[in-house]
Design a protein around this nucleic acid. Structure first.
Lengths: 196, 196
DNA sequence: GTCTATAGGCAGATAGAC
DNA sequence: GTCTATCTGCCTATAGAC
């Protein structure tokens, strides 16, 4: 754990830069923030940032890759809890509510909207994020159907796409007004429709 | 009709500017395009654009307001066809598929993602767009339930939010890869779940 | 209505001192 | 690793001729 921490936080400044960049990405999008914003917030200069991340594209890529790994850890963590599949789906949906609670939009959701203007380097990681989420959902749905706790028509993959779409879309629509109640209501109804 | 056209197209150049701006907004977002892009495409100069739209915020506002009116016309047009409510919902969903077919993302979806960085002038129209869509969906759902062609739990308004969220989210996820087949599959499954 | 020219600012990025 | 200073380029926007 200490060794892992030492590795993860090898350069304290680089990590702080990534964290601020991630928050700005999730609230303002890739084209909505600059090195100046990060420098101001961390009390550094733009030149210092370039020492850690040579280009904005590389910084963005670091943020998205780190987030992808984090998401994978979270989903494997849900699996490790040994919950019923339906409860796993509930946990998954709760993550979207937590994102809005933290005053953020989904990182890859906002980047998907801006996709055409995002550096090619980052585009692949965005697609991979959705692919991984859909795959985990399909597996969890399959498990729930086998156990009789999850229902719904269509293949596991199709139902996973439906679930993912609804959560991403609900977060997107509730994001402008930070409408946690509306998001919560939509999540509740969605889960209800999946409960066997 | 001629009079309406004459009014709508009062200044031919202004309309062409709005149309190009709309396409750029729907593909690149508000922070992803500039007056230079439009000027280049129309063979004008940036200064000429400022003659028609004094600021970028006003141009964006014109695009969104016009689109809101267009959406209202489309939905009232669906109502005027006298279809069964479920068929109206199918038409509605088809609009999202048509948007991707036209190589575009939902205008207000992309602007919702960028919400915090969009001029305040435009923010209100974005919220109004979703409000209007949700209202139309709730009314159509109510009509379908009364006629026995639409099913689903939750209030009309909650189900409308669920439908809107799923369509917006499906378009968002399919946008990066222009994945029309995936969008089509999600739409089909969604409609299936609503058919009484 | 369209142009040339330009202002004024901020973007991403680099050089080189410390 | 951080700084100052600077470069180049694009951005939105304006002035004023035609």
């Amino acid at each position: 754990m200490l060794a892992l921490d030492a590795k993860t936080h090898s350069g304290g400044t680089a990590d702080r830069i990534v964290e601020v960049a991630q928050r700005l990405l999730q609230t303002r999008g890739y084209n909505g923030f600059s090195y100046a914003d990060i420098a101001l917030e961390l009390g550094l200069t733009k030149a210092s940032l370039h020492h850690h991340f040579c280009t904005k594209a590389h910084l963005g890529d670091s943020v998205v890759r780190r987030h992808l790994e984090y998401a994978q850890t979270v989903l494997r963590g849900i699996d490790a809890e040994g919950l019923d599949a339906f409860e796993s789906l509930r946990r998954y949906a709760q993550v979207y509510e937590d994102v809005l609670l933290g005053d953020r939009m989904c990182l890859c959701g906002i980047l998907a909207a801006e996709f055409d203007t995002v550096p090619a380097l980052i585009q692949e990681s965005i697609s991979e994020f959705f692919r991984f989420n859909a795959q985990w959902l399909a597996q969890t749905i399959a498990r729930g159907r086998a156990a009789g706790s999850v229902r719904g028509s269509g293949s596991d993959e199709e139902l996973a796409q439906l679930l993912l779409s609804t959560l991403e879309g609900a977060l997107l629509i509730c994001w402008p007004g930070r409408d946690r109640a509306r998001l919560s209501g939509t999540v509740r109804l969605l889960l209800e429709s999946l409960r066997a």
